[in-house]
């Protein structure tokens, strides 16, 4: 009697989350998935035509798709590795409790609270050669040539600048998670290693990092997923420009679906993006699982 009561109880626990998630997230996603096999003008339902895989086939011949994919991969690679390396460095420094560490970690927190829109607007202003801060700063330190450089308006620097701002925004959260991870490492492990005469570097390399593997995996998977979905910073800072130079997949999707009036094609892009993220994070989880066993 009680067993059956218990066996049903989880349904009540799961039901509300399942309901809202299914109706307001997955149902629209399924509709979107279906529309990736159609072509329509977004106006009348009568104009919807089932085109099968045509949208996907077209993607492979679209040079701007490959451009956006390349930009996205470069972005994810640079940004995730920077966040992990810098985040780990800062977490280790802060965790060793230097004087003033709590002031520093308070400051590092600030970007977490700001919205991307605010961050985007702020950096766009600062980087502008006409009204910004960077140009005059460069000419003040004797680089007047660079003062007129359009950081967000030239092919070579637009995406790198977005990367810098993105890292700036995300680093605080990674540091936070990593410090949390460091603090769960039992003190006696470290103490024992030190008594055995291990240098701080050895302790980090052979004790701390292996024990940090689970939290590092969380940080990497979260950072990768978020970086693949990068959208608002690009829209606010460059709109994907100049001429596709900073266009990533979600921006490309947005422009196809909403600006060029082809929602079916746009959804096909989104579905590919979904598959890519699924594969990459699956791979990361698998690798970390194997690594853990090897240890």
């Amino acid at each position: 009697m009680r067993r059956s009561g218990r066996s049903k109880f989880y349904i009540w626990l799961l039901l509300p989350a399942f309901f809202f998630y299914t109706v307001f997230w997955m149902l629209p996603a399924v509709v979107a998935f279906l529309s990736s096999f159609t072509q329509w003008n977004g106006v009348s339902l009568a104009s919807i035509r089932w085109v099968g895989l045509a949208n996907y086939a077209e993607l492979f011949n679209d040079r701007w798709f490959w451009n956006a994919l390349r930009n996205n991969l470069v972005f994810v690679a640079v940004v995730v590795s920077s966040i992990v390396i810098l985040g780990m460095t800062y977490a280790l420094i802060l965790n060793s409790k230097p004087r003033g560490h709590s002031v520093f970690s308070t400051i590092f927190f600030i970007p977490i609270v700001l919205s991307s829109v605010v961050i985007g607007l702020l950096f766009t202003q600062m980087l502008s050669p006409t009204v910004g801060l960077v140009g005059p700063a460069l000419s003040a330190i004797g680089m007047p040539e660079a003062a007129n450089h359009q950081w967000l308006g030239s092919r070579d620097t637009a995406l790198p600048m977005i990367m810098v701002v993105y890292i700036w925004r995300e680093l605080g959260f990674a540091i936070l998670l990593l410090i949390a991870g460091l603090q769960t490492i039992p003190k006696d492990y470290l103490e024992a290693a030190r008594i055995d005469g291990a240098t701080p570097w050895d302790i980090t390399r052979y004790v701390t990092l292996p024990l940090m593997r689970p939290i590092l995996t969380v940080v990497i998977v979260l950072a990768t997923t978020n970086a693949f979905l990068l959208f608002d910073l690009v829209i606010v800072m460059t709109n994907g420009g100049p001429f596709h130079a900073s266009e990533v997949l979600s921006v490309f999707m947005y422009s196809e679906a909403f600006l060029k009036g082809n929602p079916g094609y746009g959804t096909a892009i989104a579905m590919l993006l979904f598959v890519i993220i699924l594969c990459v994070s699956g791979l990361q989880l698998a690798l970390s699982g194997r690594g853990q066993k090897a240890n």
Partner: peptide, 21 residues
């Protein structure tokens, strides 16, 4: 065109003009 012609938005450009730059 003013230096930020590819990276500034229209409001920034308008601001340059309205402030006499």
């Amino acid at each position: 065109f003013t230096a930020g012609y590819l990276s500034d938005d229209n409001d920034t450009a308008a601001g340059l003009f309205f402030s006499g730059k």
